[in-house]
Design a binder for these strands. Structure first.
Lengths: 120, 120
DNA sequence: TGCGGTACTCACCGGAAGGTAAGTGCCGCC
DNA sequence: GGCGGCACTTACCTTCCGGTGAGTACCGCA
């Protein structure tokens, strides 16, 4: 349970891609890592207002299994773990670009609010 | 409940797009309607092996609220209801194209099976 | 000496997502 | 006259997703 690589069977490509992106924070993690290149665990946590540590770990583990993120542990004290995107993660992010544009347009259309980092 | 239009707030565009596509069958419905232009309820059901009637109705209603699909009722006996994509639905499908391609590549990569219409 | 930061793990819980099965009203068909 | 198809609705149940809060081992700083 918890960590077992997603593996179909799938109806089509969208299905297979969604399987890997589904999870409340996954697309945000993808974006955050793309923006900053490399991030430590606590940096990611601070960059995603509202995420719980449990969910962040769990999502990162799954994305690692799915070959989207690279996890590098530096055996120092205090612990230091760096996360970055793999080639597949990068290309997935590129593939998400047009979806992001569509979403932006939707936000305008329905006049939705955006989450700010200064959450109350 | 069940039917209340998704409306954020969102972190970013991907987030806003995902909100509308999330649901086990939504992307498949989008694809099915794009492929065939117009489909009746029972046609959609047959085109999506494994979907339950409840889920199909529920997803279609939500997608209608979100302005993705158009629902046209013909007041005849027996009932006839036709579903088709709106402009927003069409453009969402276009935006999903690159994601679909990425997913196809992933299917190849991990050697996942595809669901066939002739499910056992 | 004790607090905060690092990167987690573990146990528990509530709610939402999704599946199952039955019922509805009307018709055509055999 | 009973069955199947149309397009649903309703009630119930299970599973999973995600959140909460605690604990861990080690260190630096005040």
């Amino acid at each position: 349970m918890g960590t077992s690589a997603r593996q179909g069977p799938y109806f089509c490509g969208i299905d297979a891609a969604m399987d890997v992106v589904t999870g409340k924070w996954k697309s945000l993690i993808l974006w955050e890592l793309h923006e900053h290149g490399t991030r430590r665990f606590a940096e990611l946590r601070r960059g995603l207002p509202g995420v719980s540590e449990k969910m962040l770990v769990q999502h990162l583990r799954e994305m690692e299994e799915d070959g989207l993120v690279h996890r590098e542990v530096h055996p120092v004290v205090p612990p230091k773990v760096e996360y970055s995107l793999t080639g597949h993660g990068l290309s997935l992010n590129t593939a998400l670009a047009s979806l992001a544009a569509w979403g932006q347009e939707r936000i305008q259309r329905i006049g939705a609010e955006k989450v700010t980092h200064e959450v109350v």
